[in-house]
Amino acid sequence: MAHLTKTYPIKARDYLKAGEVSMEIHGLMKKIGFDSDLIRRVSICAYEAEMNVVMHGGDGVLNVEIGSESINLNVKDSGPGIEDIGLAMQEGFSTATEEARQMGFGAGMGLPNIKKNSDRLEIISDKGMGTEVRVGFTV
């Protein structure tokens, strides 16, 4: 299978469009014919990362690389950054706004869910620096 790379913009605070990028990745992987468990894991990570940009980030981009041996998601935003990554990784810790919670988000499970469903996770962030989340999967 040829290596496929796609980049999608993500708009901050747009709760109606939020999730569209992940749905596209879900559809793309289904069309290619990946195993349903892998599609589920990649889609969940994409969705959680996309929602994090919508909720906390400034605008951002999600880049997906689909290969025959690995799948990589790279999600970058220009938001306020994460001051304490260890704290953000704790289940239940959330700084989501009331608006995000009304849409069903802000459970404080986003980054833990990404960790649980991925094979590799790297978070590069600091206060005022924006956030880059790199998520990898072995096919």
Binding site: A18, I44, Y47, E48, M103, F105, A107, G108, M109, N113
Partner: peptide
């Protein structure tokens, strides 16, 4: 009603109940 909680549970063959009436 919290989407991240839901994403931890259901798989194929699972029925999901929610009070969250929106596209998410």
């Amino acid at each position: 009603d919290l989407m991240s909680d839901i994403l931890r549970g259901p798989k194929e063959g699972v029925l999901l109940l929610s009070g969250l009436n929106n596209i998410q």
